[in-house]
Simulated assay, not measured.
Amino acid sequence: MSKKLEDSGLWESSRMMLTEYKERMIAENSDFKLKRSMKPVLDEQQWEEIMRVLMESLGMRVVAHFKLYHEYEDCAAIGIVDKVDPYTRTFLIDGERFKMEDIIGAKL
């Protein structure tokens, strides 16, 4: 079989590429990399506030808003905490399980 048909041989075998295509490929790759965010490091006081909100929502049945870390998008969990599992370090809101280590902000 011809090498042109294997893997990405068709792309690699072409000797010419329009500058518009090349610029667009570079722009898409750089845009994708720029959108990735780093997880912030929380201090002890912030963790105490997060745990206070978790326990208040669990005990008093009030709605809590948790901001969760994700590399490429802003995520949030809003609702009443149903269960907190200290062994697996997870909590449950409306039947959906979240990791405590993913929390980067919390408020009632």
Score class of each variant (00 low, 15 high):
94 D>A: 15
29 N>P: 01
7 D>K: 14
37 S>Q: 12
87 Y>E: 14
15 R>C: 04
35 K>N: 10
45 Q>G: 02
58 L>E: 09
37 S>P: 01
71 E>I: 12
41 V>A: 01
76 A>H: 01
12 E>V: 08
66 F>T: 00
47 W>R: 06
8 S>A: 06
62 V>C: 13
50 I>Y: 01
55 M>V: 11
25 M>L: 11
88 T>K: 09
14 S>A: 07
89 R>V: 03
74 D>V: 07
86 P>Q: 05
8 S>I: 12
75 C>W: 03
26 I>F: 09
82 D>R: 05
4 K>T: 15
89 R>W: 01
43 D>I: 03
54 L>N: 05
91 F>T: 03
12 E>N: 15
85 D>K: 02
93 I>N: 02
52 R>A: 11
30 S>H: 10
48 E>D: 15
65 H>D: 15
68 L>N: 06
1 M>F: 11
57 S>Q: 13
80 I>R: 08
58 L>T: 04
72 Y>E: 13
73 E>M: 10
13 S>G: 13
81 V>F: 06
99 K>C: 10
35 K>P: 00
29 N>C: 10
16 M>C: 04
32 F>T: 03
12 E>Y: 14
83 K>V: 07
44 E>V: 00
77 A>Q: 07
86 P>W: 03
42 L>C: 03
56 E>S: 05
53 V>Q: 06
96 E>Y: 10
82 D>S: 11
29 N>T: 08
29 N>R: 14
21 Y>S: 09
16 M>A: 12
65 H>F: 13
102 D>S: 13
61 R>G: 05
18 L>S: 02
16 M>G: 05
76 A>L: 01
41 V>D: 02
56 E>A: 03
24 R>Q: 13
69 Y>R: 09
